[in-house]
Structure formats: structure tokens, C-alpha cells
């Protein structure tokens, strides 16, 4: 009975038996790992957005009431989307910047579909606060665009990061113009 305490070395039969035994142990262990992983996935995936949440992924926005120089904020997937009707001066300023001056180089043309309409997700790319500058009279930062009060990121009139800790320009969501003054976001 002495060897029962160390059963791994217990029944030391011939080489053939040992190979068969090792194969069995490996198969069992491998199937155990596969089975556990297969069980883990539904549990993890259940925490991802559910079908009803995913179904609300697109919204239609009527832009006709938004006059030049005004902005509206709409909710898309629970987050604010900034839609700004830019003035000619703002567009000009945005297009006059040299790419070398930008921490995240991107032309203004690449960020809009129609120059006067700037559409972007209103969430600071630093740590997720909502930048100021949408409403009349709010602090707009050193570049006359948006300013994030949490950690002092300054965005220009194209929503590009110019100064402060944010690593990227404000994100542009997928959207398309259904007609001249209607967009579908998402």
C-alpha cells in the first residue's frame, strides 16, 4: 500500500501501458480544457450588448432647424453626438491648419461629408468626459472648438485635438445623408 500515496508512479507496467495511460490522461485533460472554455464563452458573451440594445444602433436626425453657427447634441447608443452647422470662417480656420501642427494628423476634408456639417461623437478621447463648447457661451478652448474641462484637452473647429492629454481627434461616427438636411447615424 505504500505506493498509493504516490499513485502517479504506482502501476509501473510496461512501456505500452504507460503510453496508453498518458494518452488517456492527456485526452481527458484536453477535453476538460475545451469543455471549460466552451462553457466560459456564453457566460462572457452574455455581458456583451444584447439584441435589443444592438437593434437601437441607428438614429435619424433632422438638421433643418439647425442654423449656421448653431449646434445640436443627439443621443446615439446612449452617447452624445455633436452636430455643428459650421460657419465659413470655422471651415476656413479648420482647413488652414498645417498637418504637421496636429498631434493626430487628419485633414478637415476627411472628417466631414459636407463641409458645413461636422458630425462627431462628443466624448473626449482622453478619459471619456463630454467636452464643452456645444452651447452658446460655453468655454470653447484655445482653438475655438471644444474644451474638455476634466483634464484640459483643446479641440479645434474640426474637432481635432490640438493641446492637452487626449491622444486622438474626436471620433466621427458612421453616418450618411438621406437628403440635404437629414442624416442617419449608425
Amino acid at each position: 500500500m505504500a505506493d498509493t500515496a504516490n499513485p502517479g508512479a504506482g502501476p509501473g507496467h510496461s512501456g505500452d501501458g504507460e503510453t496508453r495511460r498518458d494518452f488517456l490522461y492527456l485526452t481527458a485533460a484536453a477535453m476538460g480544457v475545451v469543455g471549460t472554455a466552451a462553457v466560459a464563452w456564453p457566460i462572457i458573451d452574455s455581458m456583451n450588448p444584447a439584441a435589443d440594445v444592438r437593434a437601437l444602433a441607428s438614429i435619424v436626425v433632422d438638421l433643418s432647424p439647425v442654423e449656421e453657427g448653431m449646434a445640436i447634441t443627439v443621443i446615439w447608443r446612449g452617447n452624445p453626438v455633436f452636430v455643428r452647422h459650421r460657419t465659413a470662417a470655422e471651415i476656413e480656420t479648420a482647413r488652414g491648419v498645417a498637418l504637421d501642427d496636429l498631434p493626430d494628423p487628419e485633414t478637415d476634408e476627411a472628417r466631414v461629408q459636407k463641409p458645413q456639417w461636422l458630425v462627431m461623437v462628443g466624448i473626449c478621447t482622453h478619459l471619456g468626459c463630454i467636452p464643452k463648447g456645444q452651447r452658446v457661451g460655453e468655454e470653447k478652448g484655445e482653438y475655438d472648438g471644444w474644451f474638455c474641462p476634466c483634464h484640459g484637452s483643446h479641440y479645434d473647429t474640426s474637432g481635432r485635438i490640438r493641446k492637452g492629454p487626449a491622444p486622438r481627434n474626436l471620433d466621427v461616427p458612421p453616418y450618411e445623408f438621406l437628403d440635404d438636411t437629414t442624416i442617419e447615424i449608425g
Partner: peptide
Amino acid sequence: LFLLVFTGVLYAVKRKVWAGL
């Protein structure tokens, strides 16, 4: 199907382990 095979393997392992006793 997976569980049937797995259980079969576990039975074989069980037999193997207990065979030494």
C-alpha cells in the same frame, strides 16, 4: 455528443487509475 465522449474517456481514466489498486 461531447459529454458522452468525455464521460467515456473519464471512465477509462478512472479504470486506469483504480487498476493500480
